[in-house]
Computed example of a mutant assay.
Amino acid sequence: MPDRTTTLADHVRGRHRDDPGLAADLEIVLGAIAASARTLSRAIRRAAFTGELGLAGNENATGDAQKKLDLLANEAVVAALASSGLVAAIVSEEEDTARRLGTGKGARYIVCIDPLDGSSNTDVDGCVGTIFGLYRRLDGAPEPTSRDLLRRGSEQLAAGYVLYGPSTLLACTTGQGVSGFTLDEDRGEFLLTHETLRCPPRGRCYSANLGNLKGWHPHLRKYVDYLTEKDPGGRRPYSLRYTGALVADLHRSLIDGGLYFYPADSAHASGKLRLMYECAPLAFVVEQAGGRASTGMERILDVQAGSIHQRVPFVIGSVEDVILYERFLKDGGPA
Results as ranks from 00 to 15, higher is better:
residue 189 E to S: 03
residue 136 R to V: 03
residue 309 H to D: 12
residue 70 D to F: 02
residue 323 I to F: 04
residue 6 T to C: 11
residue 157 L to M: 02
residue 147 R to C: 01
residue 181 F to Y: 15
residue 125 D to W: 10
residue 19 D to H: 06
residue 73 A to P: 00
residue 241 R to I: 13
residue 255 I to V: 15
residue 274 R to P: 00
residue 43 A to R: 09
residue 91 V to D: 08
residue 49 F to Y: 10
residue 15 R to G: 02
residue 90 I to F: 10
residue 23 A to H: 05
residue 333 G to N: 13
residue 218 P to W: 15
residue 97 T to K: 14
residue 323 I to Y: 03
residue 333 G to H: 09
residue 331 D to I: 01
residue 110 I to F: 11
residue 47 A to T: 01
residue 278 E to H: 01
residue 203 G to K: 04
residue 231 D to Y: 01
residue 177 G to H: 02
residue 297 M to N: 08
residue 30 L to V: 03
residue 81 L to H: 05
residue 81 L to P: 00
residue 192 L to Q: 01
residue 296 G to V: 07
residue 268 H to I: 02
residue 2 P to M: 13
residue 274 R to D: 09
residue 49 F to P: 00
residue 65 A to Q: 10
residue 7 T to Y: 12
residue 173 T to S: 15
residue 200 P to S: 11
residue 300 I to L: 12
residue 55 L to D: 13
residue 263 P to A: 13
residue 49 F to D: 15
residue 278 E to I: 01
residue 61 A to G: 10
residue 117 D to L: 03
residue 80 A to H: 06
residue 34 A to Q: 01
residue 258 G to A: 09
residue 30 L to W: 03
residue 112 C to Y: 11
residue 11 H to P: 00
residue 85 G to D: 11
residue 227 L to G: 04
residue 47 A to S: 15
residue 33 I to D: 08
residue 290 G to V: 02
residue 303 V to F: 11
residue 234 G to F: 09
residue 324 L to W: 06
residue 278 E to M: 05
residue 234 G to W: 06
residue 112 C to T: 12
residue 201 P to L: 11
residue 304 Q to W: 09
residue 106 G to S: 05
residue 42 R to L: 05
residue 196 T to D: 14
residue 310 Q to C: 01
residue 79 A to K: 07
residue 225 D to I: 00
residue 52 E to S: 09
residue 223 Y to F: 15
residue 154 S to K: 13
residue 210 L to C: 06
residue 74 N to A: 14
residue 200 P to L: 06
residue 152 R to N: 09
residue 319 V to D: 15
residue 62 T to Q: 05
residue 160 G to S: 04
residue 255 I to A: 13
residue 8 L to D: 09
residue 189 E to V: 00
residue 68 K to P: 00
residue 202 R to K: 14
residue 204 R to P: 00
residue 20 P to H: 12
residue 160 G to E: 11
residue 129 G to K: 08
residue 297 M to F: 11
residue 143 E to S: 07
residue 72 L to C: 00
residue 54 G to Y: 09
residue 231 D to H: 04
residue 222 K to M: 08
residue 108 R to K: 14
residue 281 P to Y: 14
residue 107 A to P: 01
residue 189 E to H: 01
residue 234 G to H: 10
residue 1 M to H: 08
residue 94 E to C: 05
residue 216 W to K: 04
residue 283 A to E: 12
